[in-house]
Nucleic acid binder design. Structure first.
Lengths: 341, 341
DNA sequence: CGTTTTCCCGTAAACGTTTACGAGAACACA
DNA sequence: TGTGTTCTCGTAAACGTTTACGGGAAAACG
């Protein structure tokens, strides 16, 4: 159906080698024949077959994006990823690279999906999201020598892969700073369990800031829960029932914050009045919630574009003349002050 | 690096043809040799190279999902698509099919992205979202004879492709029903412009229900706007300034509803008290907004799975013995009664 | 024992590219 | 004229599969 390079060659009465060279802009082809080839390609509506190309070049020109849903994820999933994905896809498209999305149930099955992509050579590289502190996907890819980059840091692997992360540590720090400046001393921290790396980073910043202000860290004010609304709902009362009640809570996740606010409401405690609430990663939900939640917001779409660039810079096939570079970046968040603190 | 079918053949001292047949479960291979091949495949960690396979079979085993952002889309995009994508991906994965996501800026560029996928044979079929009333993507794919399915109906094409849509007409109808039953007679309808097909369907249902209740359709109570918050904010005052003020508004989009509520708030009109508000497609934002918005909710993840099935049933390579069938379905929405009406 | 059928396997072509190699022609230069 | 260089192109192999075809051996059947 579609015309091949053979059709072009036959039509022009030249060899397929010359046609290919002409199309690929190689130097050793006469300027005149190149024009004729290009014209014929347009006329016959020729496009190179990607499968043939992939086979010969050993590269598929597609990048896999793998996102691992948290256990017990909500119906609507993470709105977080759409803008990131948009940015990622946009930049990749500029390099004529396709984006393949690999999801999967949480758990072991996930690893299998990744192996399939790698072993059958369905993609040239992988972008990992939702990095865990100890992440076997990273271990696997490192060991396999397969190119990848991560959204989020991890303690797995050996720092030889590009990674882009949000500065959760600083956000935790700044959140405490802001609350202390407003007179709070009893500040709770609620973060996800599941070994998610950002939960640890957040807590580091939280602790550091408390120490700087000479406030002792009270383990009773720190709690882990499932990273969803139910988790926040379940775990928030625990810190509120601490002997010396907190006057502020920092939530390390928007869904947990919403669940937490529900629990607070049931206790008759109003965020923004009776207690200050700050959430570390802003989503549209924070804005429309009542009261609107003060939150730290990342620039997800630029981050998607940036991670694409970083990944490409690490691939020999795409790296410029300066060679392949491994880049690791941590981006700041912007505080969006609203009504909850 | 990765072992090929040749490695297996050499290792077992048999021909590659036999190896391939053994792996693909063909009948004309001895049971014993098949076992040896399978064992060797496991031992050498063999996986078939997808590029080689694609080239030979003329099929890439991947499906492209194309979503076209509306002009002026929000930072966080459509949370709508995540669960749909999840379902779509899940079902495709069961058939060992990959999902490729093709986004793109609104406008002409979009068409070009689609052509690229089709002409370079990067995918075996396409799933279209955000169908317009007149949709040149559908026209193009139909003409090109390329397999596709759509989320949402359209007036383009000739009904020879699978499509799955939400029953916007019925939702519009039921929304009016509900409001009339609660005593409303002046009911406004706010929907998106951009030729989006569902806006028309919604309005059909709205009109039909009004007629059934003997209420005259007042053009002053119907308005179009950009399908985002700003659009709702801008257009809502227009219907409110109608000589005979509406007592209820049905919004055909969640973002427009949020913008509309902002406009209402500035006019001192409180949804749920001074005016009834219903939104046609529910998102998490509706739930957390204050007041929580009554809304019609689709089951997006099942829809994703279903559309995958429908698409596959239309592909000769996947259709069962009963041949390829074109299926078109319209799914109902579930009313989630909250506090805004 | 001869013939036919069945079983199993090897051979080789094909899918559509890219590219290393070499060769012919033209040209330059001495 | 002889030698070397440059320009341009054709040839053919290679990427990793799948599969049509045919053939030899074994089994079945008379």
């Amino acid at each position: 159906m579609a015309s091949s390079i053979h059709d072009l060659a036959r039509h022009l009465n030249i060899s397929i080698g010359t046609v290919s060279r002409a199309l690929n802009g190689r130097a050793d082809v006469n300027a005149d024949t190149r024009q004729r080839v290009l014209a014929a390609a347009k006329q016959l509506n020729y496009s190179p077959n990607q499968s043939g190309r992939s086979l010969r070049q050993g590269a598929t020109r597609s990048i896999a994006f793998m996102l691992q849903p948290h256990p017990g994820d909500q119906q609507y999933g993470e709105p977080f990823f759409i803008p990131f994905l948009t940015g990622l896809q946009a930049r990749l498209a500029e390099y004529d690279l396709d984006l393949m999305v690999v999801m999967g149930e949480p758990g072991q099955y996930q690893q299998e999906r990744l192996r399939r992509v790698v072993e059958t050579r369905r993609a040239d590289a992988v972008v990992l999201a939702n990095t865990r502190r100890k992440d076997d996907r990273i271990d696997y890819l490192s060991k396999a020598g397969f190119p990848f980059a991560t959204l989020g840091r991890s303690q797995s692997g050996d720092d030889t892969y590009p990674s882009l992360d949000i500065d959760f540590e600083r956000a935790g720090d700044e959140a405490v700073d802001r609350l202390v400046a407003r007179g709070h001393r009893r500040i709770a921290a609620i973060r996800p369990s599941h070994d998610l790396n950002f939960g640890y980073l957040f807590l580091d910043g939280y602790r550091k800031a408390l120490k700087r202000h000479g406030i002792e860290v009270d383990p009773g004010l720190i709690a882990d829960g499932f990273i969803n609304e139910a988790g926040g709902y379940q775990v928030t009362p625990r810190v509120m029932l601490s002997k010396d009640r907190p006057t502020a809570i920092i939530f390390n996740n928007d869904a947990m914050a919403l669940g937490g606010c529900k629990a607070l409401a049931e206790m008759g405690i109003r965020p923004g009045h009776d207690i200050a609430v700050i959430v570390i990663v802003d989503t549209p939900l924070c804005r429309y919630f009542s009261p609107a939640l003060t939150a730290f917001r990342p620039s997800l779409e630029p981050m998607g574009r940036r991670l694409a660039e970083m990944l490409l810079a690490s691939l020999p096939a795409f790296a410029g003349p300066e060679g392949t570079r491994i880049i690791r970046e941590v981006w700041p968040l912007e505080l969006i002050a609203r009504d909850s603190d």
